[in-house]
Amino acid sequence: MIKILDQIGRYFLMLKEVFNKPTKWVVMRPLIFKEVDDLIIGSMAIVAFISFFIGGVVAIQTALNLTNPLIPKSLIAFATRQSVILEFSPTFISIIMAGRAGSYITSSIGTMRVTEQIDALEVMGVNSLNYLVFPKIIALILYPFVIAISICLGIMGGWLAAVYGGFVGSDEFIRGIQTDFHPFHILYAFIKTFIFGFVLATIPSFHGFYMKGGALEVGKASTTSFVWTCVVIILIDYLLTQLLLS
């Protein structure tokens, strides 16, 4: 328990240092673009693939469970929309991102630690935490855009699966999507993803930056960071749902 509290304390001290003594903008700018390319653009293909098929699966599962003829078929679209906006896109994709982007962040920073590149930065007088972590945080500010695309593709996947699977007509599906729509749910999804983006940038960075050992430990740190990122995402998901939707 003391070890966990110690880790939490070090995590917040790390955050303080990340925002302390910023790196020159001319140096920081290309780093931010590089991180946007690696973390956001680089993740788009897997996010698009998963979102599209998850939307389809949700639609089919809902359709197969709607056996009562009194329940309108438009509920398939309604359930797909709600599932995708409220949970599947923000949370499920964040878990995927913890594996893809989180592991990349931990292993890249961890390798820099092992090969003394972080020591080299420190000895030069560079605030290594700001140099390494800050661009990732800024890049992941764009994470809600990824989720916006994920939501669109998820619903599109649901529409394709439901309509071309012969479960519901296109008009009825579109009517179902529009039924009882609360724009706040979109805001709720974006608030969640904004916070998840911060978690995705900082927890893997923490595990990479403070790792000790060699190549094997870089792998272990990646695994640990994935587990902790998932745990924190799920806990924050629960808290935000209680706070914003209850």
Binding site: T111, Q117, V123
Partner: peptide, 22 residues
């Protein structure tokens, strides 16, 4: 802290494994 960082800019270091940014 700032003076230490400034002093470090006056230091050059060659690491055992070179520590080049890969």
């Amino acid at each position: 802290k700032d003076e230490k960082r400034a002093l470090r800019t006056e230091i050059g270091m060659v690491f055992q494994g070179s520590a080049l940014f890969d």
